[in-house]
Design a protein around this nucleic acid. Structure first.
Ligand SMILES: [Zn+2]
Ligand SMILES: [Zn+2]
Ligand SMILES: [Zn+2]
Ligand SMILES: [Zn+2]
Lengths: 138, 138
DNA sequence: CTTGACCCTATAGCGACTATAGGGTGTATA
DNA sequence: TATACACCCTATAGTCGCTATAGGGTCAAG
């Protein structure tokens, strides 16, 4: 392998991505197919590393693979308006906001349920009671 | 079907659970197999309805199916200490708490990223820049 | 007697990986 | 030179919690 080419392991180490995940991104059209060595090893260019870093960063920020694909396409069209980028980012932020709210009200209920358990045996357990619809007799 | 028996559709309507989901719970050992009618229809007892309500309530609270299975087993052993119930509930609450924190710091970053976009074209877009590792040239 | 609502099984799909089986390649060392 | 070992390859199946589809059977009403 020439010094300008990177193996899949190099990309893996450089980005903290599992090798299988990199192949998965390729199979799913997020990462373009690289050239191959004589031994059929993938031989990446630095641009591949940049692209993979982009993907991972976007994934870290919680964007879906579909959103990442869209962001990549947009980022390739450098002269295009970035309005579409903004739309994707805001949609994602709104979703994160919704999830936070959902989890917060969930936690409130869980706190109440857990707090209410001052018992010893399951028959009297307020946690179990809070799950059961009525007196169970199965 | 006798009036004391419930069809899968009855359970579905009573709990807001899709029919396929009920069969899925049965296949995965959460809901015991009911009797069958002459026409091979599932014929549920009221106890099944209670159990399904329990499952759904626990799922609404975000417990995993494994956790629900454990809670069901514990709730069947009425004389047992409820310490194990407490452990499951607290573990779940802690996880929810962690997720909230993760999403909150995620949202902070997303807010910053979105806020920083005052541009017009992708080439200058701060959102794209925040994803890219360096200047891209692929 | 046919329509239509309901039910059955079995299987595949979702998202985003992860893991396994069963091999091939390339290099360092005994 | 043998061989050990790290690394790479493909293809396929598994994870979770459903959901959807295909291709049928059952049952009551009109
Ligand atoms: Zn090249
Ligand atoms: Zn208790
Ligand atoms: Zn019965
Ligand atoms: Zn912008």
């Amino acid at each position: 392998m020439s010094s300008t080419h990177l193996s899949i392991g190099d990309l893996s180490r450089a980005t903290g991505t599992k090798v299988e995940t990199i192949r998965f991104y390729e199979k799913n059209g997020l990462l373009p197919q690289p050239g191959r060595t004589q031994g059929n090893y993938r031989a990446y260019e630095p641009a591949h590393l940049n692209r993979l870093s982009f993907i991972r960063r976007a994934r870290d920020l919680g964007f879906s693979l579909d959103q990442v694909r869209a962001l990549l396409t947009l980022s390739d069209d450098r002269s295009h308006s970035c309005a579409a980028v903004d739309v994707i980012a805001r949609a994602h932020r709104d979703e994160v906001e919704r999830k936070i709210k959902d989890l917060q009200s969930l936690k409130t209920v869980l706190d109440q349920v857990i707090e209410s358990c001052h018992c010893n045996i399951v028959a009297d357990c307020a946690i179990i009671e809070s799950l059961a619809p009525a007196s169970q007799g199965s």
